[in-house]
Each structure stands twice: as structure tokens, then as C-alpha cells.
Design a protein around this nucleic acid. Structure first.
Length: 115
DNA sequence: AACCTGACGGACA
DNA sequence: CTGTCCGCCAGGT
């Protein structure tokens, strides 16, 4: 199995940061970018969209700032997104309704230190 | 190098 | 509350 090694520095940074999200918590695309002090919500999403380490890197723990789920496995709607919701629920993430995560489950990754 | 495309976000009507 | 607009920035053509 050829594991993709043609990753950009940015993608590595994103996957690395996402890997630190605790189980049962979620963070947002924007918070991710802020913590890394790199890119933007959009570019972070772009990196996750093509995430080759699908379940290993918990990209399902990254949601929109408005509490809605965002995409999963390349899709922004449909069964894949439904699966994202299921995964989160299994980890203990609670929802206010069908597609809004409970604000209490939000978690902010630590900021990278300004040297 | 120019142009286009988003798993986004915040402002505003 | 919803929908629209525009800025954002990495990647692929």
C-alpha cells in the first residue's frame, strides 16, 4: 500500500493539529487555522477534504463555527455527513438538534507560541 | 504566473 | 431564524 507522502507542509500541520483533538470534543476549521497561525478556515477545510488518513486522523471532530457539521469524506451532504454525526455521538458529543453540536463540546487547540 | 475551486466565517438584509 | 455576499488562502489546472 502506497501511503501518500506528497503532502504539503500545510497539510501535515493540519493533520497534526487535528490529531490532538480529544475524544468527545470538537473544534472548528477556523480555530484550527488560528491555532496553527497559518492559513484560514477555508484552507484548513481544503486540507481535510483530501485527508488520506481518513479515520486515523479524527477529521470528524472538526465542525463549522456555527455548530453545524460541515463535510465528511469529501461530501458536504448525504450519508457521509450522517456518518460523521454518528461517529461524534458514539464519542459522547452531544447535539442541540439534528445538526448542531452542543456548544459545551467545543474545544480550542493551543496556540502555537510566537517565538 | 493567472485563474478557478472549495469539508469556511462573519457581516448584513 | 434564513439566505446572500464577500474576504479568506492553499492547491490544482
Amino acid at each position: 500500500m502506497k501511503r501518500p507522502s506528497n503532502l504539503t507542509e500545510y497539510q501535515q500541520a493540519v493533520y497534526d493539529c487535528v490529531s490532538t483533538i480529544p475524544k468527545g470534543c470538537v473544534t472548528t476549521y477556523g480555530s484550527l487555522a488560528q491555532a496553527m497561525d497559518r492559513g484560514s478556515a477555508r484552507s484548513a477545510g481544503q486540507a481535510l477534504r483530501v485527508n488520506p488518513f481518513a479515520p486515523r486522523v479524527p477529521c470528524h471532530r472538526v465542525v463549522r463555527s456555527d455548530g453545524r457539521l460541515g463535510g465528511f469524506s469529501g461530501q458536504t451532504e448525504g450519508p457521509e455527513v450522517a456518518r460523521k454525526r454518528t461517529l461524534l455521538q458514539n464519542e459522547g458529543v452531544r447535539f442541540t438538534d439534528a445538526d448542531h453540536v452542543h456548544p459545551d463540546c467545543l474545544w480550542t487547540p493551543p496556540m502555537s507560541q510566537p517565538s
